[in-house]
Design a protein around this nucleic acid. Structure first.
Ligand SMILES: [Mn+2]
Ligand SMILES: [Mn+2]
Ligand SMILES: [Zn+2]
Ligand SMILES: [Zn+2]
Lengths: 163, 163
DNA sequence: AACTAATCAACAATCATTGTTGATAACGGC
DNA sequence: GCCGTTATCAACAATGATTGTTGATTAGTT
């Protein structure tokens, strides 16, 4: 993620005005955790700058992704997650809390040279893992299962389940 | 994918009745292409058995997935794709036509032992590739781009774009 | 200061999916 | 074949994330 100032510069170069709303989104993205959904970003933004509409947040996020400064991730969690990690990496979706964890590419090995035989060409390849995140592991044997009898992956407190 | 008869047996064992609607879905899944969405399955089903409601098709597909006979795939294509390939494999989503192509696991190499250092545990890992499917490649330099100026991935004719 | 873009509130609309309901049809065990 | 229990039907309503719209207002940029 580039600095709010760098993003502001990027917007000006694209003939997009640098408004306080946009700056607020830039700042929230820089400080917040990894993979927020639009609603969470909005919640953080209004703390700094009230009266910013959710509609505007969606709009700014889209602009950022169109400029390549943000990646929209659809990992089947119900809402798009916005990723400001621009390095090559993969993701793990926690079955218990819905968190999305970055998996640095160097911790994995992914090869798919053989697929050329199928006549397809690959432009991107991402590894999507499901499992349990580190904080849920820690809470796992103590209190976690008491609050979650055996239901579906809830993904409830999207903010930061472990804070 | 197991045979319609095997699926019927499976349903009976689960105290689910084997109705003509359910059989029709079983049969369509066996003959159809790889990764249809619910609407396509419904279209095929009504050809054999009119008056089957889309609601019922959704219901049967869910039952099949709850019995582990079908996998619901959310690959960010807008609608859930239903996969009757129960072998371990990965997927490629065609940027041009939206098709989902099976990538046999033996054509790839995926390792992620290193992620244990992060304190996470992985239960499943799927490789999701984006690129161009084989038929789109064939059509690519001839007629494809003429029909698709430069718009977003359209994923229009979900049926089978190449038939 | 002026031009133009951006934002606001307040909605409506989309789309895939699931829920509901009351009536009808049909499977399966006997 | 009967009957109890399920399943399905049509016809909607509801969900939830996202985008569209509109008319008025605010505010960057030059
Ligand atoms: Mn990430
Ligand atoms: Mn598949
Ligand atoms: Zn977790
Ligand atoms: Zn294709």
């Amino acid at each position: 993620m580039r600095s709010p100032e760098a993003l502001a510069q990027r917007f000006r170069e694209a003939n997009l005005k640098v408004t306080p709303q946009r700056m607020a989104v830039f700042e929230v993205l820089g400080t917040g955790p990894g993979h927020p959904a639009a609603e969470q970003i909005h919640r953080s933004v209004v703390e700094k700058l009230p009266n910013v509409s959710l509609r505007t947040v969606y709009q700014v996020l889209r602009e950022l992704s169109e400029l390549g400064e943000l990646v929209m991730l659809d990992l089947g969690t119900g809402a798009v997650r916005y990723d400001h990690n621009l390095t090559q990496h993969h993701h793990l979706v926690c079955d218990e809390c819905g968190a999305v964890v970055d998996i640095p590419a160097h911790l994995t090995e992914v090869q798919y040279a053989g697929v050329a035989d199928l006549g397809v060409s690959v432009s991107t390849a991402e590894l999507v893992m499901r499992g349990t995140c580190s904080p849920c592991h820690a809470a796992g044997s103590t209190t976690a299962e008491s609050t979650k009898p055996s239901s579906q992956p809830t993904m409830q407190q999207l903010g930061d389940p472990h804070a």
